[in-house]
């Protein structure tokens, strides 16, 4: 103290994780197989990857004994589809200027995001076992200064979409053709900042922006419709100027179609109807699994349901 020092304990302090190049290579091979496959095979491969991501979520939350498992499981197909078939990214060069941007606005679903990033090779999958451990890079909410592939720090709700709007404007100003994807929770759409941002996205005709709402119809304490009703959500988004695509958020073929570029010159809003806790029968559509932690027996049962080989 008493000297003029750079902030050493703040967001820039500590170590940034680095890529696992072997894993990047495996991820690239997997992307190649998916790109070369016909449509049903693509869907099968991505579904398989989503189930693998779900198993990673369960293990990650089990090791931390904390997390937001319900929303992690509802968003898994969305993440698997984006990371394996849509996003133009290079995990070995995470700050490449001409990359697509992905923002997980529902930052509490960090275990799913970290699993997707690790499986893409942004950092070693072994790091997932440090989730929320003391001084881990893998905080309960993502920090871009510690975790490559994280574009902006999220956690407080209603933050990701405004930043995505800025990225979409910035990319367009620089003549880049990259796209920006942002996933929000549905409860999060109760935040006014999201609607400020949607108005801007429509006003600036940000055709390079895709909003994906993980519409699992449950928020922390209750159903969205019993709390502060969002419906008719697709109509509301359309009225605000979005090109709306309402789909089954667990159907990979529908996700792939919905993630196609805008056809209207307007921002795309994908309302992905999902099931909170998807894939684990005793968690599905049950409000208590927002952030309940499974017991050892429940972990085993969940992994079995998610296709873990014995």
């Amino acid at each position: 103290m008493h000297t003029l020092i750079e902030n050493t304990t703040g967001p820039m302090g500590g170590t940034m994780l680095t890529a696992d190049l072997d894993q990047v290579a495996r991820w690239q091979q997997e992307r190649g197989r998916i790109a070369a496959a016909d449509e049903p095979e693509q869907a099968r491969l991505i579904h398989e990857a989503a189930q693998r991501l779900r198993r990673s979520v369960v293990r990650t939350i089990d090791s931390a004994r904390a997390g937001h498992i319900g929303g992690d499981l509802s968003v898994s197909d969305i993440l698997a589809t984006l990371y394996l078939a849509v996003l133009d990214i290079d995990p070995a060069d995470p700050s490449r200027p001409d990359r697509d941007r992905f923002i997980m606005s529902k930052g509490h679903c960090a275990a799913a995001l970290y699993s997707a990033l690790a499986q893409s090779g942004y950092f070693p999958t072994a790091e997932l076992s440090t989730f929320m451990a003391p001084f881990s890079a893998l905080n309960g909410h993502p920090n871009r200064n510690k975790v490559p592939g994280v574009e902006t720090n999220t956690g407080p709700l209603g933050h990701g979409l405004p930043v995505a709007v800025g990225q979409a404007i910035g990319l367009r100003l620089q003549g880049r053709s990259n796209r920006v994807f942002v996933v929000t929770g549905d409860g999060e759409m109760q935040e006014g900042s999201n609607w400020e941002a949607i108005m801007s996205a429509a006003h600036y005709r940000l055709a390079n922006l895709t909003l994906v709402v993980d519409r699992n119809r449950l928020q922390q304490g209750a159903r969205t419709e019993d709390t502060n009703a969002l419906d008719p959500l697709p109509e509301r988004l359309a009225a605000f100027g979005c090109e709306v695509r309402e789909i089954d958020g667990h159907d990979v073929t529908q996700l792939l179609t919905a993630f196609a570029p805008s056809t209207s010159g307007r921002p795309v809003a994908v309302v992905a109807n999902t099931i909170k806790g998807k894939g684990v029968s005793f968690m599905e559509d049950r409000v208590e699994w927002h952030h309940k932690v499974p017991t050892a027996e429940q972990v085993t049962a969940a992994l079995t349901e998610l296709g873990e080989s014995a």
Binding site: P97, R101, E151, T152, G158, H159, L161, P162, V163, A164, V165, G166, Q167, A168, I169, G170, L171, L173, Q174, R176, G192, S193, E196, A197, M199, S200, H203, Y204
Partner: peptide
């Protein structure tokens, strides 16, 4: 004209948009 982004009366969005612009390499 293209480099003035007026988000209207929406300060939360304004600051978030600034962060997004900065993250693409611009100086907002």
């Amino acid at each position: 004209p293209d480099r003035l982004i007026n988000v209207g009366i929406a300060e939360q969005n304004m600051v978030g948009v600034g962060a997004g612009l900065a993250s693409t390499g611009l100086i907002p």
